[in-house]
Design a protein around this nucleic acid. Sequence first.
DNA 1: TTTT
DNA 2: TTTT
Lengths: 131, 131, 131, 131
Amino acid sequence: MNKVILVGRLAQDPEVRYTQSGKAVASFSLAVNRYAGQGQNSVDFIPIVAWEKLAETCGNNLNKGQRVLVDGRLQIRSYEANDGQKRRVAEVVAQSIEFLERRQTPPSGAAENIDVNSFGKDVFPDEEIPF
Amino acid sequence: MNKVILVGRLAQDPEVRYTQSGKAVASFSLAVNRYAGQGQNSVDFIPIVAWEKLAETCGNNLNKGQRVLVDGRLQIRSYEANDGQKRRVAEVVAQSIEFLERRQTPPSGAAENIDVNSFGKDVFPDEEIPF
Amino acid sequence: MNKVILVGRLAQDPEVRYTQSGKAVASFSLAVNRYAGQGQNSVDFIPIVAWEKLAETCGNNLNKGQRVLVDGRLQIRSYEANDGQKRRVAEVVAQSIEFLERRQTPPSGAAENIDVNSFGKDVFPDEEIPF
Amino acid sequence: MNKVILVGRLAQDPEVRYTQSGKAVASFSLAVNRYAGQGQNSVDFIPIVAWEKLAETCGNNLNKGQRVLVDGRLQIRSYEANDGQKRRVAEVVAQSIEFLERRQTPPSGAAENIDVNSFGKDVFPDEEIPF
DNA sequence: TTTT
DNA sequence: TTTT
């Protein structure tokens, strides 16, 4: 059991890249408000990653500022930093994303609440992420 | 909504420290197995933090290897590294912990499944964590 | 661990009643869309119950049609039906409710996304529910 | 979003039946302890349903008394009672089940913590359940 | 840095 | 109908 459920707003437009094997990967930062008691609210900026069809759905339908619900798992990934040091980064690998509002600037005919529940349910190994 | 639910085993005994204001903080790494398809299982080592009464319950009742269910929220914390650089670390702030098995080496009379659901439900601001 | 997380729309205005001891209880039915594959979507109407301050917040701020996120636990309650038979009903006891959109017909100055995370965290016994 | 996460013990051995179309369906009641404050613990007996491969895994590996974690969704199902009246029943449709302890009376070589995460992820319509 |  |  490794489950994460977040509601927040995209802090940026999703970036979609492709692995060498051709898999789409979307990544963005999610601003999640933290209720810290007496009017002292703060924010966590949480890195989100989505793969394959779900990645493309994100790229095509999500924009900075939009509110979403992300259902996924928390993953710790190791990478080599510029100074040659090994560092760890945590990110949420999205398994499904629910759109909680229509996009700010509707380009085509984006319906409210596109359900992507059927995409991206697969679990991926620590494949080469191109970023 | 910022919810994390994990089932895993303590990768180490909990360390309990105290803030300057006297609050207990327990921290440990949780080994969460990842089902990566065809017998290719791997692990995420996820940093867990608990506060106050829940921290003390952890210190008194948990040991390396024990399996627990952690219910909490995902938090990104900034700190200054040794080289003066600002770095971010993700950790799960436990709101409750369910013990899924009795401890390996029962010291007193530790019952199976001590329910700590009533402790530590509070949300803490980014207070000075002493580690 | 008994956790339920639902996103849906109120199928009706909340009804607020009071127990003999004076506790507020709100109840409503939540329409939760079910993604049933190939365009075959259906709905579950799930009974929600909220207590005390959270009940009052519901009564004052929620209306039929509004979309909310409910975080709670699943409870089975026994009652005696009109024909004298004992029957069981399942309901979700809300621990917190996040408003995912401003109300349809703003009466006062209802802000978007009122956070009620701090209310209603308590667990209630099977008290006499007045309905 | 319709998510339910429960930890409890099987109140009975799973019953496995088959629909007319040949799909396996397992059902059992899960005893979930409720922490009701001051030593006043009570229990919810929650109906669980599993389909197909997951149903068979349940039938072959689970017994009364075993502790499991159920991850699923809450579903309201209508049926016609013996007296001709329409009635509703709530049940949790399991999407995955994690075994939190080895079975009481190991028949073959049941390993601890068989991971069924890869089974039963599909969502089924309100198909004819044979019970 | 790591658990079974 | 019920688990530890």
